[in-house]
Amino acid sequence: MRIDLNGQTIETQARTLADLLTEQGFESPCVATAVDGDFIARPLRSGTLLNDGVKVEVLSPMQGG
């Protein structure tokens, strides 16, 4: 399945958002996630199924003003 992860098109075997984070090597507690523009809270990641073409954002704490 092809999805959009942080603006890049990738091929993934992951079926859920939680699987995707593991597959892509994210440190799960350190990131926040959104799917198609909606926030997905940490407890809901394993129940969030990914569809072809879905847009996933995985964001981290960064510098800001």
Partner: peptide, 9 residues
């Protein structure tokens, strides 16, 4: 201090 959320670099 202010911080932000970004795609991790």
């Amino acid at each position: 201090i202010t911080v932000s959320l970004r795609r991790e670099g």
